[in-house]
Amino acid sequence: MSLKDEYVAKLKAQLDEWSADIDVLEAKVRKADVELRAKYEEQIAALKEKREEAKVKLSEIQASAGEAWKELKKGSDEAWEAIKNAIAEARKKFNE
Rank of each mutant, 00 (worst) to 15 (best):
A9L: 10
E53V: 09
K84P: 02
M1F: 11
E78T: 09
M1N: 09
E42G: 06
K4V: 08
I83E: 01
W18T: 06
E42Q: 13
I22R: 09
W69Y: 12
E60C: 10
R30M: 12
S59N: 15
Y7R: 10
K55H: 11
L25G: 05
R37T: 11
K74D: 06
A88P: 06
A32H: 02
S64Q: 09
W18G: 04
D23G: 00
V8C: 07
N95G: 04
A13R: 13
Q62T: 15
L15P: 01
E35N: 11
V24I: 13
A65Y: 12
Y40G: 10
I61D: 00
E96G: 10
E52K: 12
A68F: 01
L25E: 06
E17Y: 12
K92W: 04
S2Q: 02
M1G: 14
A79F: 04
L36G: 05
K93E: 13
K48M: 04
E60A: 03
N85L: 14
A20I: 04
A68G: 12
L11W: 02
R91K: 14
E41N: 00
L72P: 01
A46C: 02
Q43E: 09
R37V: 03
K4Q: 14
W69D: 05
S2H: 10
I22Y: 02
I61R: 01
K74E: 13
A79S: 13
Y7P: 06
K48W: 03
E71V: 14
K92N: 07
D16K: 15
A90R: 02
R91S: 11
E41K: 02
Y40M: 13
A45K: 15
I87N: 08
G66F: 03
I44P: 10
I61N: 01
